[in-house]
Structure formats: structure tokens, C-alpha cells
Amino acid sequence: MPDNKKRGEEALAHLGRELKARDRKEKTRPLGVVAASAVVILALVGGIYFLSTRDGSEDKVQAEESSTATTPETPTATALTGKRAKALPATVQCTYDSAGEAAKEASKPSGKDVSTKGTVTVNFETSQGPIDMELDRALAPCTTNAIASLAESGYYNDTVCHRMTSGQLNVLQCGDPSGKGSGGPGFQFANEYPTDEADDAAASNPVIYPRGSIAMANAGAGTNGSQFFLNYEDSTLAPDYTYFGNVGDEGLKTLDKIAETGVEGGASDGAPAEEVKITRATVKNS
């Protein structure tokens, strides 16, 4: 009977063959934020596979139990500090590429000379209470620029937070006007912190997105759009999701209230048991 190491090697080899076959197939059709059959990124974290997937063109962050036994070589997850190892220049150039049909009319933000200084406060009035968020330009300037622009334009008004998870992954996911998890603003942009600081070795190591952190949902690197997730408790994932801000004290109280109600039908992944609707967003630069 093969040992754990042998089984792990065989599983990885099988996965590699599947991904290569899928890649050849996917190259025959366009891939965008709205139209893609499946983009899967796996990271083995303490016996759990964490995936960023698109199930039926859906931007998701997903945790699944794995039957594969862990080995002593499995790295320990470290908590993200929310601080860059090296500061960015005073301004950066951001690229926002067209990507499919927008779920709701939205304009691309300007990507020229985007500031990396200061913060942007976005306040969501929701059906469950206020959620205040502080977005950090120094951490993720292009993401902050895009989300602030969408919020200021009214893109998030009258939209629901369509997904909630509990257990290994503790998030409330919002930002899709269609409410289905497949909608975006019609443009996409690159990953930032922590992805852009991770070398090839660190890219496969798990990290902890701490309670209160805000990160972008995606369907693979460079497919960030309008969807984001709020961590109401720590969540362990690969460093594949741009961490761009934190929820304030009032917002955490609202998230705790939503989390206590749970997921619809008592599941661990699905729509919130009670609807969470963003009725209005306001933006303040500082």
C-alpha cells in the first residue's frame, strides 16, 4: 500500500494532468469575468483544500474538506499583517481591462497617477445595520481606487450580499448587482497585496485573512471586478485574494449579527438566512 507521500505525489500528478487538459480545452473559448466555465486554484492547507473557483461563471472563495492526509512538510498558516514589506511609490499606474458585460452600468475608473497615500472610508447602509470600511491606498491602491469609484457612482446601491460561509471559511460576500455571484462591472484588474509580494515558494503557503479584513473575490489572478468578501472571523486561504482594507467597529457588530443568524437552511455555504441588502453607499476620502 502506498504511503502518504506517494499518494500525495500521485494526487498532484493527476491534478497536473487534469489542469493541462482543461487548459487546452479552455484555450478554444474566451475567458472573462462573466463568461468562464471553471478556473480552479488549489492550496493544501492543513488537510483542507481552499479553492478560488468559478462554478457556472461564479466568483467564489471556497473551502472543501480533503481526504488527503497531511504531511510534516505542510506549511503553517501565518496571519497577514495588512502592511507591505516595502512601501510603494507615491503614485502608481493602474490598468482596468474590459471584461464581459457589466451586471450594472459602470464606468472604468481612471488608472493614471493613482495615489498610494491615505485611506478611503466607504460606509454601507444595509438592511441589517451599518457596515463601515476603511480602504487602504498604501496596501492596494488600484483596488481601493476601483471600489471607491464603484461605490461613489451608486453601483452597490440596492444590491444584496449573495453569499455567506461558516466553518473553515468565515465570510460575507457582496458586490454583485445580479445577486447570483456571476456579475461584475465590465472591467477587471490585477491582484495586489499579498499576491504581488509572494514569491513562487510563498505563493503556495497558506495565510490567515484576519477578522475584519476585506478582500477581493476572483476567478483567478487578474480577474478582480466588483465582488469582495468581509471576514467576520479569521479565514485561512492561499494568498490569492487582494486584501485592501478593514471593517470598522460598527461594521463588525453588524457582521456578528448577520453571522449569528447564519446561512439559509442551516447550511455552511449559501445565501444569508436573512437578506443583507446594501441600500446606499457613501464615500469619504482622507
Rank of each mutant, 00 (worst) to 15 (best):
V122H: 03
V122T: 08
V122D: 10
G129T: 12
D132W: 03
M133F: 07
M133V: 14
L135F: 14
D136Q: 15
R137F: 14
R137C: 03
A138I: 10
L139E: 09
L139Q: 07
L139D: 10
C142T: 10
T143Q: 06
N145T: 03
N145D: 04
N145G: 00
I147A: 06
I147D: 04
I147T: 06
A148K: 03
L150G: 02
L150C: 02
L150F: 12
E152N: 14
E152M: 05
S153P: 06
S153N: 08
Y156R: 09
H162V: 08
H162S: 08
M164D: 06
Q168V: 08
L169N: 03
N170V: 06
G175K: 05
G175E: 08
D176F: 06
S178K: 15
G179T: 12
S182G: 13
G183A: 08
G184I: 12
G184W: 07
P185M: 07
P185F: 01
G186L: 05
G186C: 11
F187G: 06
F187Q: 09
F187E: 11
Q188D: 10
Q188N: 15
F189W: 12
F189M: 09
F189Y: 15
A190Q: 14
A190M: 08
A190L: 06
N191F: 01
E192D: 09
E192F: 00
P194G: 04
D199E: 13
D199L: 11
D199H: 11
A201M: 11
A201E: 15
A201D: 15
A201T: 14
A202M: 11
A203P: 02
S204Y: 14
V207L: 02
V207P: 03
I208A: 00
I208F: 02
Y209L: 04
Y209E: 09
P210A: 05
G212I: 02
G212N: 05
S213L: 04
I214H: 01
I214C: 02
A215G: 07
A215S: 13
A217G: 05
A219Y: 02
G220V: 09
G220E: 10
N224V: 00
G225C: 07
G225V: 08
S226M: 07
Q227R: 07
F228W: 11
F228P: 00
F229T: 06
N231Q: 10
Y232I: 09
S235D: 02
S235C: 00
T236Y: 07
L237E: 09
L237K: 03
L237C: 02
A238M: 12
A238N: 12
D240V: 11
Y243W: 13
F244K: 00
F244L: 04
